[in-house]
Design a protein around this nucleic acid. Structure first.
Lengths: 233, 233
DNA sequence: CGCCCTGTTGATACGATTCAAATATCGTGG
DNA sequence: CCACGATATTTGAATCGTATCAACAGGGCG
């Protein structure tokens, strides 16, 4: 439970036109005119690990596209403990609820150094009513978020600890290079998988000892994906 | 695992104008003209418990509004077992993915006698691009589905068996009368909560013995909500 | 009536949690 | 740069809870 003083930085106005991930972001198919209307007020931000991007209950006025890094969305349980309900990474959109004009529903915290673009929700909302490709893209984003949530339930909240850890490693490797991934603290690992910190630590330690996974640097892992998926079947 | 021969029935074309739940369905705020465009092709259907409404992989061409009853959405795990990822009830919309033109992603099965309205996805899609209140309503539906999924993760997939069962009972009572709910098979209960059939059965049986819940008819339960929420904290 | 399916219960084994302690790692100030 | 304290990780031992395998009771249906 660390507290971060100031670890957010504004790094300028986004150069969307030359964005390296433009093909997979919200505005992938916008024409020049509509694009102009939107690209002006987009800021780029960087967050350090542990930095909070927004909190549940904050007024939701912006959505974010993640350019790099990893963000956790947590939700508090009635009893005060918390559970991580989603992890967002490159090309994911965060804070879609801003389109509805209410409050954020999660605490969003960077787990790795994270770059994101901040988009004013009202501009996106306005444009999406005229521009049908943005409209469809938004629909697709809602859908993707929902699919991720379903997968979360089925894969990360079901079965023995070893299987859950394995599935998460495979999931993390999906968008990095195959067979490699970067992890985070055992406490967060537990909060993702619905396990205690000790159990996540034990499970990781044993998988390392058995040679199923190899830790190249602290929290950087390599593994044979075929082999791992067989083990967690 | 039962197989239902024929338990789906067409019960006529919907009389949307006089719909008893119109205020909480997708078209709550449509004006007459737009409403006319849409209401014609809406069919009403009834499904018996155990009947499959659609299957994962089926081409998704319709969405559904649930008028009454209870539907489970299940997802298959890599190892062949399945997990229930959502329960849908009165006023919920099912099959939003039809708006994207792909396939259904779950198996949808009635758990209780269920009435629903079937809406052609293309008509909804077309209309939603012109009509901004429908557009907003759709957005709100995606959002609601996502909130439900998050809650599912946090409440039904976290903590000891007793807490999960308690939270589910409270959840079920939300839209019925307070302090009452109708349940379903222990096998499905386990698939909702990520537990085995035996554990769900044991947990229910013990809560009955302890007087925390009272079974008035088979699978109909009554309980003191204050008391129950304190127990599962 | 007998069969099948669901729910319940029991005994045991396994796995996860809990509490506690030792070790490793990180950041900071001397 | 090293030493120190704070924090995170790992490990251990005991306990608790859930899964597993098995048996049995009750209800519905042919």
């Amino acid at each position: 439970m660390k507290r971060i003083a100031l670890s957010e930085a504004w790094t300028g106005v986004a150069d969307c036109r030359n964005c390296s991930i433009r093909s997979s972001v919200l505005f992938a198919r916008l024409d020049e005119k509509d694009f102009d209307e939107l690209h002006r007020p987009i800021d780029q931000l960087v967050y350090a690990p542990g930095a909070e991007i927004y909190a549940a209950g904050d007024k939701a006025e912006t959505l974010f596209t993640i350019r790099s890094g990893l963000v956790k969305l947590t939700r508090f349980l009635p009893d005060g403990s918390q559970r991580i309900v989603r992890l967002l990474r490159r090309t994911d959109v965060m804070g879609l609820e801003a389109l509805l004009g209410g409050d954020y529903e999660h605490n969003a915290t960077a787990l790795q150094p994270t770059e994101l673009c901040r988009l004013p929700a009202d501009a996106v909302r306005r444009l999406s009513q005229r521009n049908s490709s943005l409209y469809h893209e938004l629909m697709a984003r809602w859908h993707r978020a929902l699919s991720d949530a379903d997968r979360w339930i089925a894969e990360f909240s079901t079965g023995p600890a070893r299987d859950r850890v394995g599935r998460l490693l495979l999931w993390l490797a999906e968008r990095d290079e195959p067979g490699r991934c970067q992890l985070f603290s055992r406490e967060d690992l537990g909060a993702v998988l619905g396990l205690t910190t000790e159990t996540s630590s034990r499970t990781m330690a044993e998988m390392k000892r058995q040679g199923v996974i190899l830790e190249t640097k602290p929290n950087h892992f390599e593994f044979d994906m075929e082999n791992l998926s067989r083990l967690v079947s």
